[in-house]
Design a protein around this nucleic acid. Structure first.
Lengths: 235, 235
DNA sequence: TTTAATAGTGTATGTTATACACGTTATATC
DNA sequence: GATATAACGTGTATAACATACACTATTAAA
């Protein structure tokens, strides 16, 4: 037996929603699409799945092409399969989302793709159903970050508590009491206090912390319950 | 512009993990596969995605073929895209999971497919990577049920607190104090106490409850925190 | 009428979440 | 060098929630 005859074969694509954090707001990386249809319009980075690569491999390849990064946080989000989502030809697309340290991102590669970071609050109109993909990714990242420490993936190796708090406040669009916040994050045992300070953002300076990697991997799946009223979060 | 030329088209399938609850343990519905390869072996219900149907439509069609049910809880789980997961030909499969009231399940249809319910603890060997699909579905249902009231989808319209508790204990493989359990579930405001009792399972009889549908849909996304040590749950 | 089996209920204690304000530090400025 | 400034870092009291735990009620069957 060689093939499943009489079955229709479809195009299968992968699209990546790449999140970064610049210290103030969450951003996503978009490119100007280089081919028809919708050539020149803002788009997620995507591509067709090749016959000799898995979906995970395809998404990693695409992520590397756009950011130059490998080994970053990348997770399958959802597969979008409406029949006419691509007007040219039936294409099913599996969306992935990535969380990267925006400072490690290599701009020379991005220039080849005319990539730009956009604040999530001011994203341009996207092609096809990509707006829905981004919304789904935003919901997922909020949902997951309310329960698991994924947001550290957006920060550099060394970060301060004020930076971390701004990140959480940005993702959840909420203000958090800094005394309660530091109690909570320090109670997780996930952070190691370093001896030197970041002096860029204040005169006094704020102590750097880094992740306790061992605890991080061990506790990654543990729930955290950072958010006061998670009822407002949607899956 | 008519087509994306030069791109490889792949087979795209949908596989359904159908959960039911018989009052004691969680079960999944399997069929004996009717065609090669692996003909006659136990398998999830699946099929190829047709060119004129979305993924959601395909999964609903397949669910209806096997169970006769429509409008039940059905959610996309994950897309499995390893290159050689199907030995015959590269096939990417999007897995869905369904939660159904086992009593509504129509057996006449199942007989056409030689379908059988299997306790999750005693499932036969499955074809391809379907064992992994089932494991992923089990993790997802536990994870989600720890936070959202999805398990009601497995129960009949009228159910008792002891039945509900057995369901939770079965899903989480844990014992729960019944005083604390009833406090918690009643505090959600999701249940309406009825006036009559189920006398099948005890001499005294246990009051029936039904879902407050309005609150159910309103609070579905709210976190519930039913489980004492969710650290043990994996995504 | 006695037995057996399951249903149903309350309280005390510990843990966790929340609300809330001021002294500390280091640079920059005068 | 004194002072002003701007952000950092910390503790406590209260409320809410989670947990541990045991007996009485009900009804069918013997």
């Amino acid at each position: 037996m060689h093939k499943y005859s009489k079955q229709t074969r479809l195009l299968l694509a992968v699209d990546c929603i790449i999140f970064g954090f610049d210290g103030e707001v969450l951003k996503i990386l978009l490119i100007k699409r280089g081919f028809q249809p919708e050539k020149g319009n803002w788009s997620l980075m995507g591509g067709f799945v090749q016959v000799n690569e898995s979906l995970d491999q395809a998404s990693n390849r695409i992520l590397k092409q756009l950011t130059g990064l490998e080994g970053v946080y990348l997770e399958q989000l959802h597969t979008f399969g409406e029949t006419h989502r691509d007007p040219i030809e039936r294409t099913v697309s599996t969306a992935y989302f990535a969380l990267i340290d925006i400072h490690k991102y290599e701009t020379q590669l991005s220039n080849d793709y005319h990539a730009e970071w956009f604040s999530l609050k001011r994203t341009p109109k996207l092609i096809f159903d990509q707006q829905e993909m981004v919304e789904t990714a935003k919901r997922r990242i909020r949902y997951k970050a309310a329960l698991h420490p994924i947001l550290f993936e957006l920060l550099p190796d060394r970060f301060t508590l004020p930076q971390l708090q701004i990140l959480y406040e940005s993702v959840f669009n909420a203000t958090i009491d800094k005394r309660n916040f530091s109690k909570r994050v320090l109670a997780t045992g996930l952070l190691i206090k370093l001896t030197d300070k970041d002096k860029k953002n204040s005169k006094r300076g704020a102590f750097y912390y880094q992740l306790n990697k061992k605890n991080y991997y061990a506790k990654f799946q543990a729930f955290m319950n950072f958010i006061p009223n998670p009822d407002t979060l949607l899956l």
